[in-house]
Design a protein around this nucleic acid. Structure first.
Lengths: 337, 337
DNA sequence: TTGTATGCGTTATCAC
DNA sequence: GTGATAACGCATACAA
């Protein structure tokens, strides 16, 4: 089975064009010189045979695959989906391809290791890790063998290059926004570092800035998966709370669904903030006040960094913290009490 | 530059383990027999050297890459993003990888051809085409050389295998829903076949069913990109219209944004329906009434079909039309006038 | 069970 | 400008 009609090779083309395979190789690799007339003969023969260069064989001898491996935890979310698209586009610009690998759905560390190893089997020339969960310690061993960039999370490990959106800035800006509106009692859904490397610092920054500005902060800890019902309940139990800060747009929207079920008006009774500003959730129809991450920029900068590493340069901007922007929607307003 | 510390090969491992490279090959390919003791020696040597199998070299001789190529028009949308994730997961289940290629962002046909050719260069064993735009005629030549499946659109070309969600069923179900609610004057944003192979039949089905049920239909033609403002205006010009059917959730939401700007209440003044039910837009917070496509199933079935083709089977279900489901939200209600 | 030899499709290094 | 030939890393008949 399999083993279909064997694809034509340069030898087939060479025979048909009446030249040696060396000539054909030169024509398609663009290296070395070939008389224009023979070049045309070769091109025509190839066309007739439906010849396509075999990138595998080429990689074999050239020791180059022009391929970058992207490890992504979950590509179906808007954040990673957009990141992937941005990287793919930028990589194409540089003449590279992107192959992606995921942790096969489960959360076992072994799976992630396997995924990275799969990428190595494919002879990727560099790695871009996009995961808010994979700890730096797991990445370092690969970074020692391959140019590696961590994208989309505030990674500051000294032996890892990274590109991300400044979480401190975002968290603080949202906190400022609420305080400026007059909120003095705010609930923050804080996330543990072990749960999400991206959400932890941003929620910490929110709480910190709120306190700096003299507001009272109620921190809600706990699991971030499907716990929005509990958040809503806890927040409402404390009547003085006038605003809730969620760790992401998804969580903010899920929280708002819960509030809606409990007949709590947003922002009438409670102001809500999100975080990310990516994909469909950023629609003005929802009008969520949030911090917008420049996801396309993160993706393209990550690829640029990887390409620079491949060229042997050591980029001076080892850890790039990009700026996001505050998007004020209709889910935040001055407190009504 | 590039050309980093050369990776260890089976020869390095063989030397260290004091055996021939054949033995190492057998150990890692799992074929042929090796004495358990030597097997362990080899494994240890490999471990110490940090050896990983070179999939490129292996593909070279095995004439197999265990790789499926996915052509996706735009991977940053929820539809294609989810589809890709589903395919990736299912492919892994079957022991295959997925490499994706996109039309480099632009809309030129030449780009798409290049993308498919790139996939062939990579020696993918099969193709899955996910695009609501690439015409069948463009795909057939590739389908003749490689097992090819079209996923996510109602493709019925006889020489192409396909998996999709029944667009007729979905369009009709939504139309029935509106008529059942009492709507007799409905606007349908119809899409031309040339614009989108997926949206065209579903909107046609909507209009057809509405008429069958005795409703009056106002068809709004025209470009589907950023034309929601015009749709809103045209719909409102005809005061008797009580409902609008959009070709997708995205369009429905964009339309609702426009209606909101014009102070039109949904569903108070106007009912609105969407289509897809994928990703963040499916949130109950928006509560859009829509037809839900089983995107995960489409992805996994597409991969299953491809694998079956690779195994030499000719699946009896050449064109699989899967069933979706009606999701009734809060954007549709009985007409108020 | 283990080792030897050959070839996969391409590029690179030479002669010619 | 063109053509032989040797790698590249691995799998596999076949011999030992």
């Amino acid at each position: 089975m399999v083993e279909r009609t064997r694809n034509p090779t340069i030898i087939d083309v060479a025979n048909r064009a009446g030249v040696s395979k060396s000539v054909v190789s030169r024509v398609f690799s663009g290296r070395g010189s070939v008389r224009e007339e023979t070049r045309q003969r070769v091109l025509i023969a190839a066309e007739q045979l439906g010849y396509v260069v075999n990138a595998v064989a080429r990689a074999m001898v050239a020791h180059r695959t022009y391929t970058v491996g992207a490890f992504v935890r979950d590509a179906s979310t808007a954040f990673y989906g957009s990141l992937l698209t941005a990287m793919q586009e930028r990589a194409a610009f540089h003449g590279y391809r992107v192959v992606t690998a995921t942790g096969s759905g489960r959360f076992a560390v072994a799976d992630e290791y396997r995924a990275l190893e799969t990428l190595m089997m494919l002879q990727v020339e560099a790695l871009i890790v996009c995961s808010g969960a994979l700890p730096a310690a797991q990445i370092v061993p690969f970074a020692k063998r391959l140019p590696t960039v961590v994208a989309g999370r505030p990674e500051t490990h000294e032996s890892i290059t990274s590109v991300f959106c400044d979480e401190e800035e975002g968290g603080a800006a949202l906190a400022d926004h609420l305080v400026d509106l007059g909120h003095r009692n705010v609930a923050v859904v804080t996330v543990a570092e072990s749960e999400s490397i991206t959400m932890a610092p941003r929620t910490a920054a929110m709480a910190r800035r709120l306190r700096q500005r003299g507001a009272r902060v109620m921190e809600i800890h706990g699991p971030i998966h499907d716990a929005e019902g509990r958040w809503a309940t806890e927040t409402l139990r404390r009547r003085e709370i006038t605003a809730v800060m969620a760790p992401s747009d998804r969580h903010a929207v899920a929280l708002m669904e819960q509030l809606q079920l409990r007949n709590v008006a947003v922002p009438g009774d409670l102001s809500v903030t999100g975080y990310d500003g990516i994909g469909d959730l950023a629609t003005p129809l929802i009008g969520l006040t949030h911090w917008r991450q420049p996801i396309d920029l993160i993706g393209s900068r990550a690829v640029d960094a990887v390409v620079r590493l491949l060229d042997g340069e050591t980029p001076p901007d080892h850890h790039q913290a990009l700026s996001g922007s505050l998007v004020v929607g209709r889910t935040t307003a001055p407190p009504s009490r």
